[in-house]
């Protein structure tokens, strides 16, 4: 009886805390935890929203890895996106936050806005459609033609040779978001006296300053930035489908997220779509573990 009594006693003692977190926690469980857990469960069924799901074992996963060529394309594309845009945008966030922090006050605030604005201008992706438009009125084509770099307009958004590059550029353009702000703030909080002490100890230029003094101080922000970067680079999907259409030519920019909405939204094969989601979530958790290890150990 003792442990149970103790349990209720603690429950009662902390009741205010529980009441305060309750609304958040309920919503968190209903819209995040339960969906993820049930998606893992449903991935072993032929769930289609209308009929009671039947257990099918590993069939979905077998089909996914052995018979679904388009899934393999999607995995390849997502990995290319994640491997290129994830680290690049992380590095850009850091470098530009660093550079902007070196500017004097007013200019610094202006540049922060300039670099951050694309990530919050939701409607701006549609502007890229006109910039990268395939005829000679497209901005990029117009300039390249005028300069004589190309003879005929390039189909940036429908020619598989350029589609991926176009998406990566746009993705990078709007990726200076949460991590960028976090790094900006991180730079501002480093104690000035640290730099003075460093100068006495033989730090001679700003590169040494960042490498030996600032970076170690900013580890918490760097960790947060990494999580945000993984979150956004693996969930790429909206930008390719907005720019290249859905499905894209030859599936050249078809990502895992696009594959999920294809099976989950269009074909209503939800069991299968849940299997794809489960694979994606596992890959993200794994990547997070690895990156955390690297950042924490160094």
């Amino acid at each position: 009886m003792k442990p149970i009594k103790y349990f209720f006693k603690r429950l009662h003692a902390d009741r205010v805390s529980y009441l305060m977190i309750a609304p958040f926690l309920i919503s968190f469980f209903v819209f995040t935890v339960i969906p993820v857990v049930s998606a893992i469960g449903l991935s072993f069924t032929d769930f289609n929203m209308l009929q009671t799901p039947n257990f099918v074992g590993f069939d979905n996963y077998k089909t996914l890895f052995l018979n679904d060529d388009i899934f393999m394309t999607a995995v390849k594309n997502t990995l290319i996106f994640a491997v290129i845009t994830g680290p690049l945008s992380y590095i850009f966030c850091f470098i530009f936050a660093w550079f902007i922090n070196e500017l004097p006050g007013k200019l610094r605030a202006f540049m922060t806005l300039l670099f951050y604005a694309p990530s919050i201008s939701g409607g701006a992706v549609s502007i890229w459609k006109f910039i990268l438009s395939g005829d000679r009125y497209g901005v990029l084509n117009g300039f390249l033609l005028k300069l004589g770099v190309i003879d005929s307009p390039i189909q940036w958004l429908t020619d598989p040779e350029y589609m991926m590059a176009a998406c990566i550029v746009v993705q990078l353009w709007l990726s200076l978001g949460m991590s960028f702000l976090s790094f900006m703030a991180g730079f501002k909080t480093v104690d000035e006296t640290l730099y003075e002490a460093g100068a006495i100890d033989g730090i001679h230029n700003r590169f040494q300053e960042v490498w030996y003094l600032t970076l170690p101080q900013m580890k918490p922000q760097l960790l947060f930035g990494a999580v945000m970067q993984i979150a956004s680079s693996f969930s790429v999907g909206a930008i390719p489908s907005e720019l290249n259409g859905f499905p894209s030519t030859d599936y050249a920019t078809h990502t895992i997220m696009n594959h999920i909405s294809d099976y989950g939204g269009t074909r209503m094969e939800l069991g299968y779509a849940c299997a794809i989601s489960t694979v994606l979530l596992s890959v993200m958790l794994l990547t997070n573990k690895v990156i955390n290890k690297v950042l924490v150990d160094e």
């Binding site: 995040t32 049930s38 999580v227 945000m228 979150a231 693996f234 989601s277």
Partner: peptide, 12 residues
């Protein structure tokens, strides 16, 4: 679940 903030759980 901070990791999932990009919308990967949209289908579930």
């Amino acid at each position: 679940t901070l990791l999932f903030s990009g919308g990967v759980t949209s289908l579930p």
